[in-house]
């Protein structure tokens, strides 16, 4: 979206007034990626008619019962008959993370039912034992340790203890 459009420029409160939502919700939609961020930087940032249209669309979908996560995944697709299944909000992505070996972590959802503590305990211990002992003894090359990683994108930079 460019500033050179013949769009009018609005402050956040003007946008809120025109769309019937609170200023907090305008910004919440930005953070959730449901509408574009305001144009411009710093004090001069502003909203345009495009933002107003985007907010109206999100509100309409919400009233039709589509969750915000689903709306987010709909992206630019205006067809509300596409109803992707609900998923967790990116803001609710909370995990317990346990480092168990070089570049290897175990992760558990923090806001869902987890395995009982004894099971997690066994998992952590087992992973450590495999990585420290059995695996290390049988395979001295640490580059292979990534195979048990729960989080392959982040592996590699850690020492176990």
């Amino acid at each position: 979206m460019s500033d050179t459009q013949e769009n009018r420029l609005y402050s956040i409160s003007e946008v809120a007034q025109r769309t019937g939502v609170s200023t907090r919700t305008v910004r919440y939609y930005v953070v959730r990626g449901l509408i574009d961020p305001p144009a411009g930087r710093g004090r001069g940032n502003h909203y345009t008619d495009t933002h107003i249209e985007q907010i109206a669309r999100v509100r309409r979908l919400q009233r039709e019962g589509v969750g915000l996560d689903a709306i987010g995944r709909l992206g630019e697709c205006a067809d509300s008959s596409l109803r992707p299944t609900e998923g967790p909000s990116p803001l609710a992505d909370v995990v317990f993370r346990f480092p168990v070996g070089p570049g290897v972590r175990l992760e558990f959802d923090a806001n869902a039912g987890n395995p009982p503590v004894q099971v997690i305990d066994k998992l952590v211990e087992a992973c450590r034992r495999i990585l420290d002992g059995e695996y290390a003894a049988n395979n001295a090359d640490p580059r292979h340790s990534g195979e048990v990683s729960e989080d392959p994108h982040r592996g590699g930079e850690d020492e176990p203890r």
Partner: peptide, 23 residues
């Protein structure tokens, strides 16, 4: 309720239902 989820101010809804941690 599903009705409230549709009509409540989304920012307010986010505030009263923060992400919860079990543990």
């Amino acid at each position: 309720s599903p009705e409230e989820a549709k009509t409540m101010d989304p920012a307010e809804l986010d505030h009263i239902a923060p992400p919860t941690v079990v543990g």
